[in-house]
């Protein structure tokens, strides 16, 4: 049989000699190993005090973007919902009324935009599908919640706040 790697090691099946049968040398060896571990660097990250760096390509919670004038980018085209493999995104479109130009950039906007964070697999396809630069994946993750409903994020959760406006206030 051809081996995949040359790391295979034949099993030593020789009968144990007296010293090996006493097991004490082996136990001593094991204890030296565990003792060495006392002085090793601990990889534990004490979470609330220190946080692990996210990787540069980390895909976390979504945000809905605004343009420079603070208008919502989303035009409710539905491409993100189509692209979503987990079918986590739903939306309802509405037409922009006259006088709302300072709120929405396009003539059509999302009146309702929901992402179910329990379904979402954070693949980032929505981000790639969006033609309007409206949805981005940020560098945070969904906090815990007591109810399933709490994981359905609506527009008020997703939209980045306007300057000077407090989110969830």
């Amino acid at each position: 049989m051809q081996t995949l790697t040359n790391r295979a090691k034949p099993v030593d099946r020789r009968p144990m000699n007296f010293l090996e049968k006493m097991y004490l040398p082996a136990i001593g060896k094991g204890m030296v190993i565990t003792f060495k571990h006392i002085f090793q660097k601990k990889p534990t990250v004490s979470y609330p005090e220190e946080k692990r760096e996210f990787s540069p390509v980390f895909r976390g919670l979504h945000i809905l973007n605004r343009d420079k004038e603070g208008r919502e980018n989303c035009t409710a085209c539905g491409l993100c919902a189509v692209a979503c493999p987990a079918e986590a995104i739903t939306m309802e479109a509405a037409e922009r009324k006259p006088g709302e130009e300072h709120l929405y950039r396009e003539e059509k906007y999302a009146a309702r935009y929901e992402i179910n964070m329990l379904r979402c697999i954070f693949c980032g396809f929505c981000e790639e599908a969006c033609p309007k630069d409206a949805i981005y994946l940020s560098e945070t993750f969904a906090p815990a919640h007591y109810k399933r409903e709490g994981f359905i994020y609506g527009k008020q959760d997703l939209l980045i706040p306007l300057p000077g406006e407090q989110k969830n206030a």
């Binding site: 565990t34 003792f35 601990k42 534990t44």
Partner: peptide, 10 residues
């Protein structure tokens, strides 16, 4: 904890 490269109760 420390033998398993953890911190133990802290």
């Amino acid at each position: 904890g420390i033998m398993q490269d953890r911190l133990g109760p802290n």
